[in-house]
């Protein structure tokens, strides 16, 4: 375990060291005091434990790495993540996992507005509730919410799937409640297990696109 103390190391030093790690290496990062862009651009399967609250864009562009944050995060957590796993024990601010292509983001607390905006394949599991305009223009991947969702959930959504256990304040344009078929139950069960959320699949409802807004015909999906 390599310990990096941000009292002594700069953010750039930290990121250079983490990016240079080999698969399986373990790092712990301390004295974060809300600093921005911690543990970004990692491309190997290192394990990073960050102790304390972090600022903007923590774990951005993550590939393969397993990052745990013991604290809260500012805007843009795991923005544009490609793969790997990011877990935060506290809350995450606006646009968590925005535009993210893959991997798993687990937020044990709440997430605020625009969670999963324009998500492109990432899976997001939120233990608490999410704010307004979440999954706006979400293209693919799953957003699982164990608490409630704010206004305009899934506005202009494409083919991402949303599972919500609590109440949805309002659905956005072209987002509708959909039937929970067996394949969805299996997918949700797997995500709840991976993220260690202890809820039954039957407690959730599924939401997705009514497919009336975008110029795309699902019957011709193979042509695209």
């Amino acid at each position: 375990m390599t310990e990096i103390n941000l009292d002594k190391s700069s953010v750039r030093d930290l990121n250079v060291e983490l990016q240079g790690g080999s698969s399986g290496d373990k790092f712990s990062v301390n004295n974060t005091v809300g600093k921005h862009a911690l543990s970004v651009g990692l491309t190997t399967a290192v394990n990073v434990e960050i102790n304390g609250h972090v600022g903007y864009y923590c774990a951005g562009m993550n590939q393969q790495a397993n990052i745990v944050i013991n604290g809260n995060a500012g805007p843009g957590l795991a923005e544009n993540m490609m793969s790997g796993e990011v877990r935060i024990t506290g809350n995450a601010s606006q646009y968590a996992a925005a535009t993210a292509h893959g991997g798993l983001l687990v937020i044990e607390g709440d997430s605020s507005s625009r969670c999963g905006i324009s998500m492109k394949g990432v899976n997001i599991v939120v233990g608490g509730s999410i704010g307004h305009m979440s999954a706006f223009m979400a293209q693919s991947g799953c957003l699982v919410v164990c608490g409630d969702a704010g206004d305009a959930l899934g506005d202009s959504i494409y083919e991402a799937k949303i599972y919500v256990r609590g109440n949805v304040k309002s659905l956005g344009t072209d987002c509708i409640e959909k039937e929970m078929r067996d394949e969805h139950k299996a997918e949700l069960k797997e995500l709840l297990m991976q993220s260690k959320m202890n809820h039954g699949v039957e407690e959730f409802r599924r939401y997705g696109s009514a497919r009336k807004l975008y110029n795309f015909d699902i019957d011709q999906v193979d042509d695209y």
């Binding site: 609250h53 809260n72 809350n91």
Partner: peptide, 22 residues
């Protein structure tokens, strides 16, 4: 505007922290 300003205060790490709703 950001937590890092609050982090300078004594006891910030154990404060009750939240984001104001619109």
């Amino acid at each position: 505007s950001e937590y890092r300003a609050i982090a300078t205060l004594p006891g910030a790490e154990n404060a009750r922290i939240w984001e104001p709703e619109p």
